[in-house]
Design a protein around this nucleic acid. Sequence first.
RNA 1: GGGCCUCUAGCUCAGGUGGUUAGAGCGUACCCCUGAUAAGGGUAAGGUCUCUGGUUCGAGUCCAGAGAGGCCCA
Length: 937
Amino acid sequence: MDLSKTVNLPYTEFEMKANLPLNEPNIIEFWKENRIYYKALNKNKNNNKVFILHDGPPYSNGKIHLGHALNKILKDIIVKYKTLKGYYSPFIPGWDTHGLPNEKAAIDTFKIDRKKVSPIYIREKSKEIAVNYSEIQKEQFIRLGVFADWENPYLTLNPSYESIIVKSFGELYQNGYIYRDLKPVYWCYECETSLAEAEIEYKNKISPSIVVAFKLLNQEFLNKYNLNEAYILIWTTTPWTLPANVALAFKPDSSYVIINYNNNNYIISKEALFNSWQLEFIRKGEYKILFEFNSNELNNLKAKHPFIDRESILLPADYVDISDGSGIVHTAPGHGLEDYLTGKKYNLPILSPIDSEGKFTDEIDFLKSIHVNQANNIIIDIIEKNRLLLNKGNYEHSYPHCWRCKNPVIFRATYQWFLDVQKMKDKLVKEVNQVKWYPEWGLIRMLNMLENRPDWCLSRQRVWGVPIPVLYCNNCKKPNVNKVLVDHIAEIISKEGSDSWFKNDSNYFKPNGYKCMYCSYEDFSKEEDIFDVWYESAVSHLSVLYNNLKFHPSDLYLEGADQYRGWFQVSLITSVGVLDRAPYKAVLTHGWVLDEFGRAMHKSLGNVIDPMEIVEEYGADILRLFFATTEYTNDIKISKKTLATIVEIYKKIRNTIRFILGNLYDFDINAFDLNIDNLLLLEKYILFRFKELLNEIEGFMEKFEFHRYVNEIYDFIVHDLSSLYLDIKKDVLYTYAKDSFERRSTQLVLYHILKSLLIILFPILSFTCEQAYKHLKYTDSISCYLESFPDFNNINFNLDEINNVKNIINLYKSSLPIFEVLKNQGNFKTLNETILKIYSNDNSLLDYFQNNFKLIKEIFRVADIELSNSYNFANLKDKQITFSIGDKNYTLFIDFIKSNYLKCERCWNYFKELKQIENHKVCNRCLDVLKNVGIVI
RNA sequence: GGGCCUCUAGCUCAGGUGGUUAGAGCGUACCCCUGAUAAGGGUAAGGUCUCUGGUUCGAGUCCAGAGAGGCCCA
């Protein structure tokens, strides 16, 4: 007789080796074929619980990187959790498709000469690229296990979406937030377009650096200080902006000086004497201070422009830094934002004699058609010839560059459409304060950013985008914007797409019988500018939430922390502008994925890791588990080493699942009902622990603390299950009669815990849980995702019983080091061949142990236990432990001695006596089992 | 230059309102098991909490400064 054949060893087809890269695609196929995402939605549709996470659209001009993967996986975890909790939680993915990067890509890829082909052709090719990449990204997200309405994503190029873009402009206009104005904007003369702040990169650049003298014209001021003449000094690194100079700005109410050097009098701030700017004679102190005066005396004085017959006015400005340069700032309202604001305040002319290619217009005749870069030297020469140049040199500084073509940009005043952010600032602040920010510092960051937010230039001079819906009267030239007109245009675009604007004549877009709102003329020209792409993604809440889902505001926005300035902010602005409220109730941000040294990933550094490489090597579940174990609100460092750790954690989880599955191979759920009162102590204990676990992890998930969620579950798996409960219960599972009460109740508990584990881990390890779920019997659903999040709250426990088990487990844990020492001395090898000896001089404590004899024996898995109140301290000095019952502490001694018991050949436990069966010796219990199954008569 | 953030064992994370020898897991070393087996169990060694200064009887935990890194902006 082979006794090992009479033992109930685990069996399952759920393999130990995961082989995720190979198996995951099959599971994806299963989800797709069975429409699991949609089934779960349907299931919760009438639950009256809704949770909407609104997806921010990634830009569709490349494959996904780890940042995209992190973002979508985090979103997926939340949506899956909410769905399992019974929420109706549709997740509509989106893509940002218009804009310069794709237009550039089209021009490069298809070698397009912008001046020779029609806008329609460029748009067609841009669309090809955008759609292609959105499809690629979609497949990649699906491969990561992300559940979403992949059949109906929102693309900003969809006509229905475009019409919302157009329509919202009309609504903002009607609400008084839109204006048109000449304004300096970042301008790229290579791309011939204005750029949003988001399209600017700062890089170091070497610029010419000159100090220029403006001759003071006010005789009264000169007389006061007994001077014949004096010059105001300014320092600039952009000589080409001097033709547009109309003012000189000084810091109000500050100390300024008149100094004399080489028989000339110069006016600068007092501070300027002590900083190391360009002038050598100042650095060397070769000047004489003639007078010191309050800068307010400069107010409204006039100076002569260094090479144009024009006066420049002296004005106060708070932003002037008295310790920077001369402390007096050359002001050209057409070429700088602060200059512009000063210009507006004092009604100065806004000069902008530069065309779209960066060349001077005929406003300045000697510079006509000359590019700003060439103009610098010409201007410097003229100033030098006029003997007004005090210094010329080079200066390296951080300077704005175009994010696409990497060329330096300029400030240039042009007519643009603006969204008046200043006007709604109070409302924005109010709304921001009502949003729940995760992490909390998001609130402060958002408020700080809003404070400095300038008005939003909405217009772009490009073709790949949505047209700004304005018609210009061909008679009075005034722009026509109103609700009737805009809604009409939106209607056309919703049917024909924005291509229509580029294909059709201007008058195609006016409603029947429409006349100019100013002069009643009936012939119009189209606006040629398109919307900033940020505007397009900024109205996603109007299209996806308000229009389609009929649910606004959303419960959550979740993006990288860079979006405080980006999508969070622009969405807030359009939402307040149109609907007077924020588009989100809560905002959650994540950090960036960095390399193992904590550096950002850059192509130039060669440290970029492709998420799909990780998926192909380890599997998507590994990447998901990795992200779920990080504190993602900070930046995340990723490396092979870290992934190896994750693989180990994964294996442990998988093996535990597999072991439980294996022990359920003959489980019969109908054996009896789960009635807590019927169960044995350890079964109650493990269920109690699981209930505790559920309560804890739900708290973590509500706060989006996935790493604590996973760690807590993993802790349970390692400590409570694998090393304790499962290890102890092997004896029952393997050697007890199949239908014994002990074995069946253990199986029942294992069944419920496993099923629950698969559900609570599903949001993280979707593939593995789904696969394991298929091996679980007695389930009602075809997918783990169609289950409900487990709830043990209606199970009540006798806390005295539970605490009792806890006490004994603590006794066991603190006894193990003593056992380990004895084992290493060679006295014995395993616990079950030893006798546990407990010494205490407290008889009530010994009674306590006597009453828990069975439990102690089960947990310790020893052959026997001996309790004693007499002992020799000398023999036990290293065997003292502290034992607690409640808050009462006892000191006692623990010893293990090798028993002379005999090993049962079937269950491998040790007994005082065994029975002989055929050629084997077995214990009484095993004998009963063998008789029961008829092996022994 | 400004706003915001991060810095605890080799790695990933815990460490309410400041208070005994700073906790886990993974990894490492060693041991046991061979009926979870390219598994399972156990024990141990690893941090003075980035640095400096301060407040305090007492600080990883509060304050100030520095360093390294990240995002956003000028």
